[in-house]
């Protein structure tokens, strides 16, 4: 299938992009705030068996629950680790509370901190300055939260280290044939996470001839990206505004699947390791098959 500009070579299948740009031991950010979470990319990383990753994400969500449970993570840098509106991330909890499948290191921060830290990373600054963490135990337990004095007024402010991932992966609505990417709806910290990283992969719902975007739209120019991969439904069970809704039903279904180690493992073996990519995953998984129209 000819998916884009062959000469440029930036548009490629997702499995090839993960093989080329994601390494064992990388500092990896998969961003997307509820919306546009790059599930297909996370699944491909699991299929390819990447290990010892330092995972960054404000809201680890189901995709990091799956990656942690499959043993991909050495460390997690995060600010809110739950199944939104449903309850716990059971694989994350099992790793923290009982060290299964192995212990993971935590670097715990707040949303405001990580959002500022991505901005600092994108701005090529070593740290961000913010009002925060006063009297919070987070600052006691995380040695990478510091306090500084304003050089002009002496006011005490929090300083937090920039996030500079080796690789950031996000999902977006569409790209043109050169690989310029358009995001709309809830943007989270994706633009900042892309510009803070050394390498970037963007999966998109579709490749189009023209983005036809207003001049203030959120566009990531092709020349800041390593790879652009067309993956229809690549954010499912999260959502892509204008394409499909969030599968709240699957987020609820994940609770019993993930609660039990064996149920989790057999689910991952059947639907992720036992499939070759996003299309097959969606066709095989009953909850997805019902919701996804090819």
């Amino acid at each position: 299938m000819r998916v884009g500009n062959i000469e440029d070579g930036r548009i490629m299948p997702l499995d090839e992009a993960v093989r080329r740009f994601v390494n064992d031991g990388d500092h990896l950010a998969l961003e997307g705030f509820t919306h546009l979470i790059p599930f297909a990319a996370g699944h491909e990383i699991i299929r390819q068996g990447r290990k010892n990753l330092t995972l960054y994400r404000m809201t680890p969500d189901l995709i990091y629950d799956q990656m942690i449970g499959m043993g991909c993570a050495k460390k997690l840098v995060f600010s809110w680790g739950g199944n939104p509106g449903v309850g716990s991330l059971h694989r994350f909890r099992d790793a923290v509370e009982r060290g299964w499948p192995h212990k993971i290191e935590l670097e715990e921060r707040s949303h405001a901190d990580l959002a500022n830290a991505y901005v600092a990373g994108a701005s090529n600054l070593p740290f961000a300055v913010m009002r925060g963490y006063v009297a919070s135990d987070l600052a006691t337990h995380n040695p990478r939260i510091a306090f500084i004095s304003c050089p002009f007024t002496g006011e005490k402010l929090a300083a937090v280290p920039a996030v500079r991932p080796d690789i950031t992966i996000i999902h977006a609505q569409k790209a043109d044939r050169r690989g310029n990417v358009l995001l709309k709806g809830i943007l989270g910290v994706q633009k900042e996470a892309v510009l803070a990283a050394k390498r970037t992969i963007v999966t998109v719902e579709e490749i189009v001839d023209e983005l036809s975007a207003p001049s203030n739209a959120c566009i990531l120019p092709h020349w800041v990206l390593s790879a652009v991969c067309p993956v229809r439904y690549g954010a499912w069970p999260s959502y892509a505004e204008g394409y499909y809704e969030r599968s709240n039903r699957f987020y609820q279904a994940w609770d019993p699947i993930s609660k039990d180690r064996e149920a989790f493992t057999s689910w991952m073996e059947e639907f992720v390791l036992g499939t070759t990519g996003c299309d097959e995953f969606l066709q095989k998984l009953p909850e997805a098959r019902d919701e996804v129209t090819a």
Binding site: F33, A115, M130, G188
Partner: peptide
């Protein structure tokens, strides 16, 4: 909304800004 970023929130909002803006410009 089930989650803090459901589509119904952005589709009915007066505006949707990047998350860092929420914390930097609007809260801080």
């Amino acid at each position: 909304p089930l989650s803090i970023g459901d589509g119904d929130l952005s589709l009915t909002a007066d505006t949707v800004v990047p998350t860092h803006e929420i914390f930097r410009y609007w809260l801080q």
